[in-house]
């Protein structure tokens, strides 16, 4: 079979649909961002996200089908994100995907969002095959895992508190940079000195590949409070650059250490923070000396998208893992192996 899958993704604040062939070739990839809707609130408002997804989903699906030049008859299946994410938001995608699958008598595949991010590297690098190491780093996740095969994963470590992207959002807010925090901090940090302030690089006891970012966030808050008490002007660019350097260094060093420990020479970085240029340049500098190849998807595949969901869907469908009509959304869905 050609393996044409329609993917649907509504786990957070992007309404997305895509058509992918054979799990690797993107025929269309439509993403509608809700950033402006949530901006006045300084973060994603779950009820508003759910309302917007339902308003947008049908035109987005229509656009994905039209841009791919694919008819319903030509599809081989529907893949949809069923978790983790905001449950109300997930439910919109799951509901619409199930109705389409029911109406067209197509196989339905429920997909883990995290797994989707990993597979965005298969779309970006068609030659890539497991095994490799994956760093999933976004507003919701900071996970380091071994991809042993399609559908076979070994979790090496994850964040114990805030996700890296979440720390960016929170620090951006206290610096008055607004939402979303990641791109704002990255832009301001370009004008600053990353060595101006020594923010902590947290180590998690007895877990060499785990992360913790609440400490560095608190350190930034304390630093700002001290400056205000002393009446000093705050060098926002230096704070942003130093904070970013602290987060990026931990991500890069721990990932490369994990690769060395596992004897793996290829790392795939993915998720929203994978688009961060400071992260990419530090990976580039450190990976060469370690003899490790680091791969990233292009920015459009770093953000939440449905092409990556359709890619997972293709491999799951090949393995016979389809869902029934009672498929539900799960807010905190753990990444489980199925291969």
């Amino acid at each position: 079979m050609a393996g044409l899958l329609l993917g649907i993704e509504t786990s957070c604040d992007e309404t997305a649909a895509a058509v992918v062939a054979g799990g690797r070739r993107i025929l269309s990839n439509i993403i509608s961002s809700q950033v402006e809707l949530h901006q006045p609130f300084g973060g994603v408002v779950p009820e508003l996200a759910s309302r917007k997804h339902l308003e947008n989903i049908s035109p987005i699906v229509q656009e994905a089908m039209k841009a791919a030049g694919v008819t319903w008859e030509e599809l081989d299946g529907i893949a949809v994100t069923r978790g983790p994410g905001l449950v109300g938001a997930l439910l919109v995608g799951v509901t619409v995907a199930k109705a389409i699958a029911f109406a067209r008598r197509l196989p339905l595949v429920g997909v883990n969002h995290l797994e989707g991010h990993i597979y965005s590297n298969f779309l970006a690098h068609p030659w890539l095959e497991p095994p490799f190491l994956a760093l999933v780093v976004s507003g919701g996740h900071t996970d380091l895992l071994q991809v042993l095969d399609y559908g076979r994963y070994r979790l090496l470590g994850q964040t114990r508190d805030d996700a890296a992207g979440e720390a960016f959002d929170k620090v951006a807010r206290v610096l008055g940079l607004g939402y979303p925090g990641g791109p704002r901090i990255e832009a301001v940090a370009r004008e600053g000195n990353p060595e101006a302030i020594a923010f902590p690089r947290a180590v998690v006891k007895d877990a060499p590949f785990a992360f913790s970012f609440s400490g560095v966030k608190t350190a930034v808050l304390n630093y700002l409070n001290r400056c205000r008490q002393r009446g000093e002007t705050i060098a926002v660019a230096d704070v942003a650059a130093s904070f970013q350097a602290a987060v990026v260094e931990v991500l890069v060093e721990r990932t490369l250490a994990a690769a060395a420990a596992c004897g793996v020479d290829r790392v795939a970085v993915c998720g929203g923070v994978a688009a961060n240029s400071a992260l990419r340049s530090l990976f580039q500098a450190r990976s060469a000396e370690a003899g490790i190849e680091v791969l990233y998807p292009p920015p459009v595949l770093c953000t939440d998208n449905a092409a990556m969901i359709a890619s997972v869907g293709y491999y799951r469908l090949q393995a016979g893992h389809t869902a029934s009509l009672d498929l539900n959304a799960v807010a905190s869905l753990p990444l489980a192996s199925w291969g």
């Binding site: 759910s50 439910l91 619409v96 109705a99 389409i100 029911f102 109406a103």
Partner: peptide
């Protein structure tokens, strides 16, 4: 119920679009 309404209307939209 907000969620209930979205499940009903989401189902209706998916059916209407696919059929």
């Amino acid at each position: 119920s907000f969620t209930g309404l979205r499940i009903g209307l989401g189902t209706g939209k998916g059916l209407a679009q696919a059929l």
